[in-house]
Every structure is written in C-alpha cells, then in structure tokens.
Design a protein around this nucleic acid. Structure first.
Lengths: 133, 133
DNA sequence: CGGAATCCTTGTAGATACTG
DNA sequence: CAGTATCTACAAGGATTCCG
C-alpha cells in the first residue's frame, strides 16, 4: 500500500475537497454545531439556547442563527405574544447533517486519548527549546 | 415529534457537543481538510501539497502540517538526500477521520442545491431593504 | 424577550524575504 | 527543497448598550 501520489490524483481529490469546505465553512463556526445539537430535540427558544450553550454571547447566537436560517437549516417562528417568543427548529436537512456530525463525534471520542497523547509527546519533544534558553 | 426541549436535554446534548468541537477545531482550519484529502492516497511531499492545494501559502502549509503532526494525524519523514525531501503520510487515525469526512461531503453534495436556493430566497427577502432606501 | 448596533480584542491567514 | 521569520490585514468573536 501507500502508493505514491501522482499530480493527477491530487487534482482529482481537490475537486472532491470543495464540497467539504462548503459544509465546514457553514459548520466550522464556533457555535453552529452546538446550536444544531441543542436544537436537535425539537423547537427551542432564543433564551433557552442562550442559557444552554454556555459561553455564547447574545450577539453570536443571533448571528449564527441568522446564518443557519439563511442556509435553510433552521426555521424561525415568531409568536406575537405579549412577552415576545421566538422558536427555532431544525429543518429535515439540518437533522441529516446532525446525524452525520454524530459520526465525527464518535471519531472524536474514540481517538481523543490518542490525540491527547500525541500532542503531549510532540510538545515534550519540541517545547524544551524554551527551557534551556 | 418535535418534542419540546427541556433544560435537562439541552444540558445533556451540550455534553455531547464538546467532542465535536474538538474535532472541528482541528479540522475547521481553512486547509487542514484539504491536506487530509490530498494525502489520503499515500505519502506526499511538501511541494506536491503546495502545488496541489491551490492558493495555500508556504507558511500556512507548514503551520497546518505541524498541527496535524502534533495531533498524530500525519507523520513527517525526512529523507536526508541532497535536495532535501520530506514526505507526509496520514496515520491510521487520520484515515478514519478522512472516511468520516466523506459522509459530510456526501451530505454537502446532496444538499448544496437546497442550501443555495434557501440562501437565495433568504437574501431576496432581506436584502431589498437596501434597494428602496 | 429577542434582538440590533457599536466598539474592541484576537486569531487566522496572506505576502514577502531569508536560510539550511 | 523545505522550511522559518516578520509584518500586515481582515474577519470572527467578546462585551456592552440600546430598542421594539
């Protein structure tokens, strides 16, 4: 195995990479995923998200929700009640995405130890330079 | 369906969200994924990556590779030949990640049209304010 | 309650030039 | 060839304040 790369194959996979970037650009934001996860169980209110997401600012919550709404991943429903009430709900497409993200979660959980150790090892080998300076 | 969220469930999913963020923080970078994809076929040299990835700067290629190496996702092999030769290869763990990312690609391809339309619709409804000003 | 507007800090990335 | 170093810029994000 481990066939060498040819220029051709590299170009080929680059073509494949574009759609990936589309998803990632949409999901890579610091909060998008957490909103997707938090809203996966059903409609959820603005304030519930704000309290549930830990560390998110009102501003970023609004911005991220707007982007998700723009991409057709969440629906925004305004209830014209006396205390305003707005509910956000994932669209079917977003639910699919949520399922897919679960695989990534699994990968992360399965390999978090490996990565942590790799990182520690790497740092141990490369940081010392700072100590004997 | 669409059961209302309870505070409890939101907290629960938040716990789940953490590992996801770990992956994303590692993959979200503008170039990480493209490197993973480009290197998925086998060992690849620095310059091959630089030419194959279109738009990446030498600096970012180096930085991203270092991070991937640090996380144990790529191995760096230096061949002490006259013209220096360094090859990068994905580790098994990275190959797993690459597989998982494929699912995201599939999702992106299946829904890119939907998202593009949603975006166009949204913009059509919210941008006009700029026109009749 | 659910935002929008403003200001400020930081990380991410580009460009360029130099080295082993 | 495969980096490193420096300097810059821009956009993401945090904090705060005001509004319907």
């Amino acid at each position: 195995m481990s066939q060498r790369n040819t220029g051709v194959t590299v170009q080929a996979v680059n073509a494949q990479a574009c759609p990936v970037r589309e998803v990632l650009d949409r999901v890579a934001g610091k909060w998008s995923v957490q909103i997707l996860v938090a809203a996966a169980q059903g409609p959820i209110r603005f304030t519930e998200l704000e309290r549930g997401i830990e560390g998110i600012s009102r501003r970023m919550l609004t911005l991220t929700l707007r982007n998700l709404e723009r991409d057709g991943l969440v629906t925004r429903t305004v209830h014209a009640t006396v205390p305003p009430k707005v509910e956000y709900e994932l669209t079917p497409v977003a639910l699919e995405l949520h399922q897919t993200l679960q695989r990534l979660t699994d990968w992360a959980e399965n390999n978090r130890v490996y990565i942590a150790e790799a990182r520690a090892t790497y740092d141990a080998e490369h940081q010392p330079e700072l100590l004997d300076a």
